[in-house]
């Protein structure tokens, strides 16, 4: 029996069946993979936090190698001693603090009545306390984010940056080793005041030997991404300044 595929009723039935089949297929797939994907995201966060505080498996001079996913949970528990949630003047310990979605917190904080929750991770490496803060901002095309590790005087111990869709070869270079390593040693506090770190063009210091100027060398061709990164560091790290002032 030949089907008349031109009939309207056939077209409608076909469309309905197709949508049902495809819809349930994709819904089933998404549900089945959800735990795996969530776990991957959690591992990634742990890897990034550890990377910022200098726990990684870099070998060559250009490597960015995280702790492998099968060991990251154990290493995270070993190096991160405490996790805090800072909300206004309150500081609460919470071992799930790293799961806080700082994008959502920043959005909630826009209405003014909400005190945003700030996660802070206190790690210990080579006998020294290291504080890791998450940061998030805007690049040229989409979100950029990262983790900044500092000691208690807010001198940078290490950073990790990532992005959603910066231009490959230009803005996407913020996650390259040579760029991230430049931040180490820079200071957020100049005297007592919060200065931030500027991604600067023409600071005549391509190897970043001057660690007191609060500037790192910019990436050529990635002006907007660099400016976004500067703004992100100024805005998000500033939220923690009061906490650090109490430490000293």
């Amino acid at each position: 029996m030949a089907i008349n595929t031109e009939k309207n009723s056939y077209t409608v039935v076909f469309a309905i069946i197709m949508v049902l089949v495809v819809g349930s297929l994709l819904a089933g797939l998404a549900n089945g993979f959800k735990p795996l994907i969530k776990a991957n995201e959690r591992y990634e966060k742990q890897q990034n936090i550890l990377y910022a505080m200098g726990v990684h498996e870099n070998e060559g001079p250009n490597d960015v190698v995280f702790i492998p996913t099968d060991r990251v949970e154990a290493e995270f528990a070993k190096y991160i001693k405490k996790q805090y949630v800072i909300q206004g003047d309150k500081v609460i310990e919470d071992d799930q603090a790293y799961l806080i979605d700082i994008k959502k917190e920043a959005n909630k904080a826009k209405d003014g009545n909400y005190q945003r929750r700030l996660p802070l991770f206190v790690g210990e490496k080579d006998g020294e306390e290291i504080y890791v803060m998450p940061v998030r901002g805007k690049g040229l095309w989409d979100a950029i984010w990262g983790f900044v590790a500092v000691d208690k005087t807010m001198t940078i111990k290490g950073v990790y940056f990532d992005h959603k869709g910066e231009t490959p070869g230009l803005g996407a270079e913020i996650k390259q080793r040579y760029f991230m390593d430049d931040f180490t040693g820079e200071k957020f506090l100049d005297g007592g005041a919060f200065e931030g770190i500027t991604v600067a063009k023409g600071n005549n210091d391509p190897k970043n030997e001057d660690k007191s100027d609060g500037e790192v060398d910019a990436l050529a061709g990635a002006t907007i991404t660099g400016d976004g990164l500067t703004a992100m560091l100024k805005k998000d790290v500033k939220l923690y300044v009061d906490y650090f002032k109490k430490l000293n």
Partner: peptide, 19 residues
């Protein structure tokens, strides 16, 4: 190919790619 209604074939193709 023999059961796709020709009126909505582009949409059907699009759904297949997207899926």
């Amino acid at each position: 190919r023999n059961i796709i209604p020709s009126k909505i074939r582009i949409i059907v193709q699009l759904i297949v790619v997207a899926t």
